[in-house]
């Protein structure tokens, strides 16, 4: 941090600043550490990270990219929720309204859809990266399991969102997709009926998918992501080989 942008001590020592931050301007090791440990958002990070774990060719930033796409999805998703109505009579007209008369509506929907596809891709690639670097090895076994659960949540969030436009594309994709669940022996038809709220994709399925998509799955994902990131910190950051001397 250069001296020129450092605010005067009057500000950083003031009662109001200190009530917010509880530490001084982060230009020294102590205040930099406190920036991380005393801030709820930054607290998922360790105070210091290994230089090797920051190498682009090691992680490709795929985990962080997944989180970023999740944030983009929450932001654009909330915007879309202001106009979308989860009813089989009104969903499709609402889609038309969003695309034709809501300012930036089509663009917001585009952002939401492409981010969703990209997130599935990023999460899968993240898993591939973690596997090939052997980053699931002890003590990180359980965090790999949390990651697999997060992958399933991501697929679930994308699949439930797929139905919402209520067009031919989404209707038949969900019909084909949910039929697969029906093939399970004994419990198959029950599982399918629980998912759809009936025998066919209809109003009950739409409201179930909507609720899963905008409430249950995002909340579960935030919780699982917090555990996932917190454990990365607890396990000493990304798994990098400290014995290996620069390749």
């Amino acid at each position: 941090m250069s001296e020129s942008i450092k605010p005067s001590r009057k500000i950083t020592d003031s009662r109001i600043w200190r009530s917010f931050f509880r530490h001084g301007w982060p230009d020294n090791p102590l205040d930099r550490s406190l920036t991380m440990t005393s801030n709820v958002f930054f607290h998922l990070h360790p105070v210091k990270v290994s230089r090797k774990s920051l190498a682009w060719s090691y992680s490709f930033g795929l985990g962080v990219i997944s989180v970023i796409l999740f944030l983009v999805l929450v932001f654009t998703g909330v915007l879309l929720m202001f106009y979308y109505v989860p009813s089989i009579e009104r969903a499709y007209p609402a889609m038309n309204t969003i695309q034709l008369s809501v300012p930036m509506g089509q663009f917001t929907r585009n952002m939401h859809r492409w981010s969703a596809h990209l997130m599935v891709l990023a999460v899968v690639l993240h898993m591939v990266r973690v596997f090939y670097t052997g980053a699931y090895k002890p003590p990180r076994e359980f965090n790999w399991v949390v990651g697999v659960v997060l992958l399933l949540f991501t697929l679930g969030a994308s699949f439930t969102g797929y139905l919402l436009p209520w067009d031919q594309l989404s209707y038949w994709a969900i019909t084909v997709g949910s039929n697969i669940a029906g093939y399970a022996p004994v419990v198959g038809s029950t599982v399918r009926e629980m998912l759809l709220g009936g025998q066919e994709v209809g109003q009950d399925a739409l409201i179930r998918f909507y609720t899963l998509h905008i409430a249950l799955l995002p909340v579960l994902m935030v919780v699982a992501m917090s555990v996932h990131l917190w454990r990365v910190r607890k396990d000493g950051g990304l798994a990098v080989n400290h014995n290996e001397h620069n390749g």
Partner: peptide, 30 residues
């Protein structure tokens, strides 16, 4: 994502109709 969203529109087909099967009926890509 911003640039891609400016270039490519998200698809919206005809309104869902349980009586007319989409052909081909495909699951989401994943």
């Amino acid at each position: 994502v911003f640039i891609f969203s400016l270039v490519k529109q998200a698809p919206l087909d005809a309104i869902a109709n349980p009586l007319i099967t989409a052909d081909p009926a495909k699951a989401p890509w994943y």
